[in-house]
Nucleic acid binder design. Structure first.
Lengths: 222, 222
DNA sequence: GCATGTGAATAGATTCACAGCG
DNA sequence: CGCTGTGAATCTATTCACATGC
């Protein structure tokens, strides 16, 4: 009897990564008081094709109206709910160097339901420093901080060499979602989500295609 | 006779995104004077599985030795070449707010073959300001700057509302690789590469899985 | 009539499993 | 014998195309 009758829709990973993009488009539409939107139009805004939009949205449920399109407000609500955005998820930023500093000052976090609850560093020279309303605290306090402030997401902005250790500490403290900005591959146990943002990787990918396209135009020029 | 005999290997997109990760592992190995590495070990370092490593590397060529593994230095060289990292690709950062500022100060760029050649902003109050060795220049100078400094990559760190316009200007100026940090979907013509890094999107993806895992543990607890 | 929702078809990525070679 | 390199099998994602229902 432990099985639920409710069919827990299995949303493909690729779809999950696109939902936030649709969501952003929906916010824009809501601002311009647009009432309904077709998959075609939404696709254009999100930079994908219409079939993909329809397939993706169908995983959330049948929220459209044939012959009409999707109700912007309703879809906005359903998607927010599905993404877990009806509640706040407090964030802790670990590593307050250049990048961590910028992230700490970035309004986009709090504005969108991810309040920065704490700033953490290992460097005693930084601990105690104030950034906006927050005082940087020492990494040894991490576990307490996570518990007290109900931290849900850990943002790692340390140098590569400390990244794995910081991740381990976050996991030990009970954090189950981690966003890693450090240029290092880190591992997490099952049940913990990890996303990575790596500048160098992105630039190198661009470099690959840049070189390819130059090589081609050189060949053409011969 | 315009066809080359050399078979231009078609490297899958998914593989291209992993090459920089392998490359980083190889640099670490090189630092510890490791001479050869098996697909198994490299997989562990890169956080993928061994079959994938072998398949990925096979697209570059048969650079391994059966029964032994891959020569670290040789693979490092081949991979760098394939990624176009044997030359520098000058970068221009457009939008010197919080994030742009942090990026401008980030040493990771120049150190890895992506020298920051120029900083650009549209705000007259920022133009003229100096950050490190660079003076912020006005966006109207973009085209000249790209030409003079042989800018290959444009990094967009503007607010969402200006992102598309900035991208259009970069493309018009001849930039064929763009890294977009602005939380907006932008379009580029064929032949231009675009990668995006979006904080809010990453956090929302984490939120989705966080909510899922909490919902599951709640269900178990009943 | 028109745009959704979705099976079926296709394309792409991952993993398996083993032949081949040093 | 050990590890690469790779076809074949599988899994996942995308796209097509049209029945369905407002």
């Amino acid at each position: 009897m432990s099985e639920q009758a409710r069919p827990v829709r299995r949303i493909p990973e690729a779809t999950v990564t696109r939902l936030p993009v649709y969501l952003r488009s929906l916010y824009e539409l809501a601002e311009t008081r647009t009432a309904t939107i077709s998959s075609e139009q939404l696709a254009e805004m999100a930079g994908v094709n219409a079939a993909k939009v329809r397939k993706d949205l169908s995983y959330l449920g049948s929220y459209g109206t044939r012959g009409v399109g999707y109700d912007v407000q309703y879809l906005l609500f359903q998607m927010s709910r599905e993404l877990g955005l009806t509640q706040d998820w407090p964030v802790v930023i670990v590593g307050v160097g250049n990048l961590g500093h910028a992230l700490a000052n970035y309004r986009g976090f709090g504005d969108r339901g991810f309040p920065v609850a704490a700033l953490i560093d290992a460097d005693p020279n930084r601990v105690g420093q104030e950034i906006g309303p927050l005082r940087i605290r020492h990494i040894d306090e991490l576990s307490d901080i996570v518990g007290e402030l109900k931290v849900a997401i850990g943002v790692v902005a340390t140098p590569a060499t400390s990244a794995q250790e910081v991740v381990d500490r976050l996991v030990a403290a009970g954090v189950r979602s981690i966003l890693n900005f450090a240029p290092a591959s880190v591992v997490v146990p099952d049940g913990v989500s990890l996303r990575k943002v790596d500048l160098a990787v992105e630039l190198q990918i661009l470099s690959f295609y840049q070189q390819r396209s130059l090589a081609e135009s050189d060949a053409d020029a011969v």
